[in-house]
Write a protein that binds this DNA or RNA. Structure first.
Length: 128
DNA sequence: ATTCTCACA
DNA sequence: TGTGAGGA
């Protein structure tokens, strides 16, 4: 199982997953919209959860929201969705399709990854 | 080969 | 937001 909060994705992978530039992704971080961890060498390591967040940010930007508004919106969505998530155990990705998919990405076996936010969400399952 | 920070002829 | 410099 891969925990959704495990920091295992490099910038390159996230670029492919989100179709966003490293510049844009770092900019989101500068505005406290995401909080990737760092490797010993200082490289950012993103979790699946981070990627989902980035996808939401991308959508809101396309709707014309500025960074301040997006942060407020994200916080609001988080608070309402967190109440139910807090009581449950950590979320996991299904061991079959999504895990194999992630492994392909991590191994570099899969180069082009035309995924949209909507596509990505289908890889996850809420564990109750 | 990748990513990081900083700064803008 | 892009991009080049300079370093890890």
């Amino acid at each position: 199982m891969i925990d959704k909060d495990m920091p295992v994705l490099t910038m390159k992978i996230v670029n492919q997953l989100t179709h966003l530039s490293a510049r844009q992704i770092r900019y989101y971080e500068a505005n406290e919209l995401i909080s990737p961890s760092r490797s010993e060498g200082g490289q950012r390591l993103y979790s699946i959860h981070d990627v989902e967040l980035i996808g939401q940010v991308k959508l809101l930007i396309e709707k014309g929201f500025n960074m301040k508004k997006i942060k407020e919106e994200l916080d609001r969505l988080n608070r309402s969705a967190q109440k139910s998530a807090d009581e449950t155990s950590p979320q996991y990705i299904e061991e079959d399709f999504s895990t194999n998919y992630i492994k392909k990405v991590l191994s570099g076996e899969s180069r082009e990854i035309p995924l949209t936010r909507g596509d990505l969400s289908r890889f996850y399952k809420q564990k109750k």
